[in-house]
């Protein structure tokens, strides 16, 4: 379990992180979303015992990062957003070095390395030099490195940043596998949709403050004051437009004759929305489809980070 209580990091008068209170339950995947410089990496650095907080504390499996940093290190697998590799070191030697750094015995390392390389699809690169691997491969290798001591908690700072779409998908598949293995994962990204699929809950951070926290759907619901509803009609659009115009919760109706559809903003509740559809059916309007438009998560993210506190 990961917990932060009033975690704060201040540089002079500038707050890089302000009063962060966060709980990630065991086996959960928590996505941390925020623009560059919002405070994601600061949080992760404190959790990884690399940065001293100005106030507050963070706990990894109940152990304080400020009181027991050495014990905390053994519990976490940390992957920074930017990292380098050693020149002239082969992939298996790279993992062997970090395995030894976590106190694993040579035999254990020997058995673990092929398994980890298989997990991150790098078994064919076992004897290649690390510095010659592609960016995506290095990212995957770094993830394998973070797993070498079998930590229960993974702290992954932008693991998919800078990757091409294919490498991004591969990384996502590996993370799903780790989730299935029961790891507690704290992962950050500046791209919300990337996280939505795999996270149990997300937190949105902006200017050092956590401005929203909950499941992706919760956050969307809290943010959405209006829904966009798309209606496809088989016959004439006029009758449909006239019908929907009379509803007090409907606004901004736009008809798209070419596609035989119309869309409008709707402020009513879910029950009122059902009643609206039932009335339309009773009026025998030739409706082919009546659907809520999927909100683009990017839009949600953009709206949240504009400064609205939706907690």
């Amino acid at each position: 379990m990961i917990e932060t209580i009033g975690l704060t990091k201040k540089y002079g008068s500038f707050y890089a992180l302000q009063d962060l209170n966060l709980v990630v339950e065991e086996g959960h995947v928590f996505g941390f979303v925020g623009a560059n410089g919002a405070g994601k990496s600061t949080t992760f650095s404190i959790l990884a015992t690399l940065l001293q907080p100005t106030a507050g504390d963070a706990f990894i499996n109940g152990m304080s990062v400020t009181e027991k940093p050495h014990e905390v290190r053994a519990q976490i697998g940390y992957m920074p957003d930017f990292f380098g590799v050693y020149d002239q070191l082969k992939t298996d030697e790279y993992l062997d070095f970090y395995g030894a750094s976590y106190g694993l015995k040579p035999k254990e390392r020997e058995q673990l390395i092929p398994k980890l390389l298989e997990l991150v699809n790098l078994e064919h690169k076992r004897y290649d030099y690390v510095d010659l691997l592609s960016r995506g491969m290095k990212q995957r290798l770094c993830l394998a490195r973070a797993l070498i001591h079998d930590p229960k908690i993974l702290i992954l700072d932008e693991p998919a940043s800078g990757l091409d779409p294919r490498a991004r998908v591969e990384m996502r598949d590996i993370l799903k596998e780790l989730k299935a293995m029961g790891k507690t994962i704290l992962i950050s990204s500046h791209i919300l949709p990337e996280l939505a699929e795999m996270c149990d809950s997300i937190g949105v951070i902006d200017s050092g403050k956590l401005i929203a926290q909950g499941s992706v759907h919760e956050i969307q619901a809290r943010l959405q004051h209006e829904k966009i509803i798309n209606v496809k009609v088989a016959g004439s659009l006029e009758a449909a437009v006239a019908f929907f115009e009379n509803d007090p919760f409907v606004s901004r109706i736009v008809a798209v004759p070419d596609k035989g559809m119309l869309h409008f903003s709707y402020k009513g509740t879910d029950v009122q929305q059902i009643e609206l559809l039932q009335k339309a059916m009773a009026q025998q309007l030739p409706i082919r489809s009546f659907a809520e438009e999927e909100t683009d998560l990017e839009d949600v993210f953009m709206a949240i980070t504009k400064g609205a506190d939706v907690r």
Binding site: L50, R73, Y102, C142
Partner: peptide, 9 residues
């Protein structure tokens, strides 16, 4: 490479 080294045991 230092940060990774410093987060080991």
């Amino acid at each position: 490479t230092l940060n990774i080294l410093l987060t080991t045991s």
